[in-house]
Design a binder for these strands. Sequence first.
DNA 1: AAGACGTGGGC
DNA 2: TGCCCAAGTCT
Length: 288
Amino acid sequence: MPDLAPPLIAWYRENARDLPWRRPGFGAWGVLVSEFMLQQTPVNRVIPHLEAWLERWPTPADLAAEAPAEAVRQWANLGYPRRALWLHRAAVEIRDRHGNVVPSDVDALLALTGVGDYTARAVSVFAYGMRHPVVDTNTRRVLARAVDGRSQPGPPSRRDLAAMDAILPHDDTEAAIVNAAMMELGATVCTARAPRCAACPLAHMCAWRAAGSPDTGDGRRKQARYEGSDRQARGAVLRVLRHATVHSVPLDAVIADWPDPLQRDRAIDSLIADGLAEASEGMLRLPR
DNA sequence: AAGACGTGGGC
DNA sequence: TGCCCAAGTCT
């Protein structure tokens, strides 16, 4: 397998988007917040929310001092609101266990609530310049095509980390660039549908292209239907709680017109179980 | 370890 | 319309 790093580095230097978290001195807290927001939410939707968040809470302790409800409300419509809860918990943990400094060590990062294999390495690499493989869905797709000759990656696996590590240069700085370049290439050129191979710096050494760009099938899990789902009901409940001018709403009034009353009750119960809502004396509200 | 978990945009 | 997709994590 030829060395992917040189063309990736040259391409990234010319084509990287100017994203807030790539600005010099953006800070590890900003990077951590951005990574939470970017978990399954597109870049363009994240940017305005990220800037508002950091303006309101410039350090972990600023966020930790607030009630979780404020984090959930500020999260607005970014989706997967448990991430707001987890980010709040992580802020408390960083304040209490790390002196209000986002850790640089992967294992310390992994111990934070809501931080998994991807986010831990992304923060260590992009905020602190450490040398680790960073593997997200973009990286996995580029590896699947350029290295394995497949149209789509298989299911996520710890082996992905070793595969990415194998193409990283020894130098820390160059390794960080290759990590970012793989993600950027997957996001802007080597996309899931209609990849722009004519603009790809790896096209001349791509195993998938060499094999004639075969459709090797999709190893991706199909997403459950959203329309009519419990998730949709949960989303509707939480939207009411976020928008409530009084921070507490009569339980019976929350999406009272929902078509399926059992689903409505299930949604409320599960939100309470998740810590995203609290009920008391016939009222429902975001967690204090 | 397969499924749950929001939301919005593209085609 | 309906399905796919988006810098994942947790149970």
